[in-house]
């Protein structure tokens, strides 16, 4: 009880502190921000033309700051591992009620559409808004839909695990290839051609890495969703 109380006090004071912080933050923000300084973002925009990628955000996320993205993938990887570790001993599905007929038929109808849309967002991430993170989450949401409509469904663990491993390993290996070929980690060693601007095959390693990110995010989110659903209520 006392642990619970101290935890809730801790959380409450944390929230209050952050709320106060945000208020003062916005206040200062609105007062006097210099608009004439050259920000790193402007520099990155100028650099983007050399990579021949239509979507600037993708270039920044996957290439210019690709190391941060690798780090974020690692964060997601450990988070899903932690969810798995903390909830692993339970195997029963939390959803006790059988889903109704409408949800079952609708999910069968929607599942392929969501998957295809997710894959599209993933693969065309360097040409149009979207990309690996968004596409991966879309695919995971399709899996979630299947899981809640059919509580006896088992997502094949081995397949997801294989996809996840493949994606993670190839991301680091692409980075190491850059190190090997041109002495710079995560270098775009496929030397993008500006003439290919707007084509599906353009931008060197950028679309490849984003698809890898998509697979990784999709499988991690799938793991998390499955683990959270499989929690039994005796904890």
């Amino acid at each position: 009880m006392s642990i619970k109380r101290s935890l809730s006090t801790l959380t409450l004071s944390g929230f209050t502190l952050s709320a106060l912080l945000i208020l003062s933050f916005i206040n200062i923000l609105l007062q006097n921000v210099a608009t004439n300084i050259e920000r790193a973002g402007d520099g990155l925009l100028k650099l983007n033309s050399s990579e021949g990628v239509a979507n600037v955000v993708t270039t920044v996320v996957v290439y210019f700051r690709g190391f941060d993205t690798l780090g974020e993938i690692a964060v997601l990887f450990i988070a899903s591992l932690g969810v798995g570790l903390m909830l692993e001993r339970n195997t029963e599905c939390t959803i006790k009620v059988q889903s109704n007929f409408m949800l079952q038929s609708a999910s069968k109808l929607l599942f392929p559409i969501i998957i295809i849309f997710g894959l599209y967002v993933m693969i065309y991430g360097h040409l149009s808004p979207g990309g690996g993170f968004q596409g991966g989450v879309l695919v995971a949401s399709a899996v979630l839909l299947l899981l809640i409509s059919n509580k006896d469904l088992e997502v094949p663990h081995a397949v997801i695990s294989a996809l996840e491993t493949l994606a993670g390993v190839s991301y680091v290996l692409i980075g190491l290839m850059g190190l090997l070929l041109s002495d710079v980690f995560l270098f775009n060693f496929l030397s993008p051609n500006i003439a290919d601007f707007g084509l599906l095959l353009s931008g060197g390693i950028i679309p490849i890495v984003y698809i890898i990110v998509g697979i990784k995010v999709g499988s991690e989110m799938g793991f998390i969703v499955q683990n959270l659903l499989k929690r039994s209520d005796d904890v």
Binding site: L70, E164, T165, V169, L179
Partner: peptide, 20 residues
Amino acid sequence: MSSVLFVALPLLFGFSTPIL
């Protein structure tokens, strides 16, 4: 040798544990 390996190799190890 490159100092990026300090981060890249543990990540590679982490991602490839199912294979190992």
